[in-house]
Design a binder for these strands. Structure first.
Lengths: 205, 205
DNA sequence: GCCGCATTTGACCAAAAGGTCAAAGCCACG
DNA sequence: CGTGGCTTTGACCTTTTGGTCAAATGCGGC
């Protein structure tokens, strides 16, 4: 299940090459759809060599998922209870959207996993993820109670931020198909739109 | 690629049984992750019998996607240019959310397909889907120009409705993991939240 | 109740997939 | 510059998978 503890220089390099290749392949085809041969080819290694660094396909996948979970949650972690409420939420939206733009493969990796019922990380969702959301939802609820933010369901507010920002990574092909080839950077337009959306939603008059 | 023209009673019944089973399996495991044996088992048929009705796994999948596309777009089709703008948009949101609640498998079928780059329906997205969205975005833009709806990017408004409503079907396990077992019907809460969100977003003062 | 066509199936096949293994190659350190 | 452990690989194994086929079964109209 675990990656070997990378001690030597070669180990570090190869574990990282494999992770990169696996991210590419898993995010495109999902767990079941990806093949070890494909990952090995992408990494420029032979299959037995790849399996020398990770004991199984599952192990690579779960290594990716757990490693990237932190990256994925960082923007929410950075939501600062002592900041100015509306600006804090908007900054969170911006960070999350930026992450979607810069790391669409990570977004799709999680999307594939969760759409298919999160068989490999269900545990993490109801512990690490839930705990963090509980904490931040409480912060947001506090701001609302204090009249510093318009009232709304804090959990669903967070869900809506996830949903909207990740949409532009996960459903990229659909967004581009609908907007047509003229729009070069859908995510930039999205940024402007989301700024407006959450401002109107949360600003206290 | 196509399902056989179902003429006899038995053909109609079996094509429909297979479609139902395939929807269940494809929506859970994605195209590559689903197996023909699995679909056959779910349908209560032998594999060769199933392949008597559809020439290949691909054929079943693309039959589902094209058949269900209409169902999926119906709520948007029903957006009525002659209705009251805000109420029309809110009604659209309600219809779409209701569809997510009642047909989550269809939602996940499309989600799987699109997250993986829409290899089987890219064509449909840039024709049928794009045409419909172009038409309805124009209606919405018209309302905004007439001052009957607060201004916002019409295409991204539609994307945000898709994103938010489908989130509760596609990411159901995540939503439930975060909300905990006490919340029995996340989609109901979501309905109230989305009503507020789009009202604040679109209402003209 | 018989015929022809629709339907069903067990047995089979080739390709692809995850994974193993023993042997060979390579590198670093004494 | 040789040795011991790290790294790499070709060959191989088993299981799974999509798909085929000839033969058997069943159904509806005459």
């Amino acid at each position: 299940m675990d990656k070997p503890v990378a001690t030597t220089r070669i180990q570090k390099r190869n574990v990282s090459i494999i992770s990169e290749a696996a991210l590419e392949v898993f995010s495109t085809y999902g767990f079941r759809g990806a093949t070890v041969d494909q990952i090995a080819r992408e990494a420029g290694l032979s299959k037995p060599n790849l399996l020398y660094y990770f004991p199984s396909k599952e192990a690579i996948h779960s290594h990716l998922l757990t490693t990237l979970m932190d990256v994925w949650l960082a923007p929410l972690r950075d939501l600062d209870a002592s900041g100015e409420p509306l600006e804090e939420v908007l900054a969170y939206v911006r960070r999350k959207l930026e992450l979607s733009r810069q790391r669409p493969r990570e977004s799709r990796l999680f999307a594939n996993e969760i759409v298919q019922g999160a068989p490999h990380i269900l545990e993490l969702l109801s512990t690490e993820l839930k705990d963090l959301v509980d904490e931040k939802a409480a912060v947001i609820a506090g701001w609302m109670d204090a009249g510093r933010l318009a009232k709304a369901h804090p959990y669903h507010l967070i869900f809506s931020i996830w949903s909207l920002t990740q949409h532009y990574a996960d459903f990229d092909v659909q967004v581009r198909a609908v907007l047509g080839p003229k729009v070069k950077d859908p995510t930039r337009e999205a940024g402007e739109y989301l700024e407006v959306l959450f401002t109107r939603m949360l600003k206290v008059d």
